[in-house]
Design a protein around this nucleic acid. Structure first.
Lengths: 110, 110
DNA sequence: TAATTATATAAGCAAATACTTATATAATCA
DNA sequence: TGATTATATAAGTATTTGCTTATATAATTA
């Protein structure tokens, strides 16, 4: 159970085009910041700031591996199934991930 | 299927405490503006402006009956089941509706 | 028809938002 | 160790947001 104020914060975090795209990508796999910069064609500070918003409401998790920070969806969050439902109503971003692979820009850690 | 930009607009409309409470009330019944003013203890212009935001993304419907404007959830909207899922995670507002009835402030149109 | 009631809209303003550029931190590599 | 790479954060700024007060519109009632 969430307070209305809490739900507001989570929906505000989700309700932005770039962050929606990030969330959509993260339903496919986890990605590091530089991969998301490449996928979304936006500046690194902007992506980092968006990820911070998502982290603050716990819907994404961060894990450092070497010099990279990997982000993933928090599957234990009460909003997780709602997020999957939402993403199912949005266009998939599969081709963009494939392009990343083809261009050799995928970061494979250990 | 929604565009990311479209989904952003809908989530922005939903992601505000007062509008979340309005949505929550509307899952119980339809209400006119003056009832929502009473339930939420906020100014009439503020409530009208919030309802406008919700109308603009079609998640609520408006119907005039006499001098009252009644608002209801749009059950045909693709977000409707997601909205119900969301509201199920929020505290119910049943007591407040009961108080409205007890205080004789419920507007019963024909 | 005039007064009342319900609702919508406009204008003004402070706070929040989402970008930018600049810089700090942190890990790796040569 | 010094340079490079990846990420985070800070400061500045234009836009959006959510309230307020004032006013317009619309239907009802006396």
């Amino acid at each position: 159970m969430f307070s209305y104020s809490n739900a507001e914060q989570i929906l505000k975090a989700m309700g932005e085009e770039t962050r929606l795209k990030i969330i959509s990508y993260l339903t496919r796999d986890s990605f590091c910041v530089c991969e998301l910069v490449e996928l979304l064609q936006m500046s690194q500070p902007s992506i980092s700031q968006h990820l911070k918003r998502l982290r603050e409401v716990d819907i994404v998790l961060e894990e450092r591996r070497g010099k990279w920070s990997f982000y993933s969806l928090n599957k234990k969050h009460e909003f997780y199934t709602l997020i999957l439902h939402l993403v199912s109503m949005l266009p998939a971003k599969e081709e963009n991930i494939q392009s990343l692979v083809v261009e050799g820009k995928r970061v494979l850690c250990e």
